[in-house]
Design a binder for these strands. Sequence first.
DNA 1: GTTAGCATGTAAGGAGTTACATGATTTT
DNA 2: AAAATCATGTAACTCCTTACATGCTAAC
Lengths: 181, 181
Amino acid sequence: MVLRQPTLDLAILGRLSQGPSYGYEVRKHVNMVVGYLHKVSFGSLYPAFRRLLDRGLICDCGTERPLLVGSRSRRIYHLTHSGEEYLAQQLATTDPSALTDDFSVQFSLLGMTDTRNRLRILHGRREVTAARLTMIDSWSLTGLDRYSKELVRHSREVVADELAWLDSMVAAEESAIQRGE
Amino acid sequence: MVLRQPTLDLAILGRLSQGPSYGYEVRKHVNMVVGYLHKVSFGSLYPAFRRLLDRGLICDCGTERPLLVGSRSRRIYHLTHSGEEYLAQQLATTDPSALTDDFSVQFSLLGMTDTRNRLRILHGRREVTAARLTMIDSWSLTGLDRYSKELVRHSREVVADELAWLDSMVAAEESAIQRGE
DNA sequence: GTTAGCATGTAAGGAGTTACATGATTTT
DNA sequence: AAAATCATGTAACTCCTTACATGCTAAC
């Protein structure tokens, strides 16, 4: 995997908050957000639904038509009231210094919180990214061969682009505040 | 972690092929190559040295001075003859469609093989990256909210930059061939 | 009606991180 | 000489991936 359990849970809840859905479809959605590098495996997905059911954060409305037990038809899930509360509470306290894929999930859910929290997350991410850039620049590359140096040079560029992107996101949020939210 | 076991082994062997070294130092080196996102943990590092010792790919020359058993001084390792063979054989058969960090290790070791194999690896990576870009472009973004769309747009850009970088690497290798290796 | 893809689910095995534990070396 | 950092090592815990298994649905 690459997605931590709490993050996968968050991604599933986030998807369900936009309407009922089922496992296979949710997976496709999550893969679009974080999956340009890897796919969420079914062995992670279904146990996650089980977890969320057990905690009462989602509920199982059965299959669409037949409603047979043990059937392999689509099982439609939707967010419960506690699920909504949990989601809102999680989004308000996420840690912006997270692995790339985990942060992607956070970013994709930015539309579900207020501007204040969005700025907390974006600012936080901007800081850790800036720190990473500083770290890379502090490395002495002497002793590295041509290809290793090229790799570090490229990595630096990727991080610098990331930083510029976050800066533009922060700027957009702040100008939205200026214009009166 | 994020580095697979075989990749970590490869990274360690690669470092040792440039001269004897010890765990702590090797870790710093590997972190420079793949570590701008995460660090190799000691719980992964030392068991890896154990593995390589057991397979006879590296050998333990003892500590620098005292040579006490059970001591916590630097333990210097160096590559054995079979270690060299193994490394060369692995590099010749690596899979360029690998997770980002695993590929980074491959890339950093490109200087240890011939141009032919370098082109195999770079070409292979170029293809999977191009396929990823095509996949992203095939996605219908309708139904996604503003932030999710922005995330996908940014992801596409990152992948496109990656592709351009690989293209330039391939071009450099090919022009090296033209100029007579 | 048969093939291919949609859809759900489980279990074993593998593998990493975290936390813990200890000793050596350098700096203040 | 105390504190900080370098350095090595182990084990429990967590948790993911892989492989397996089954049923439904649409297309040819």
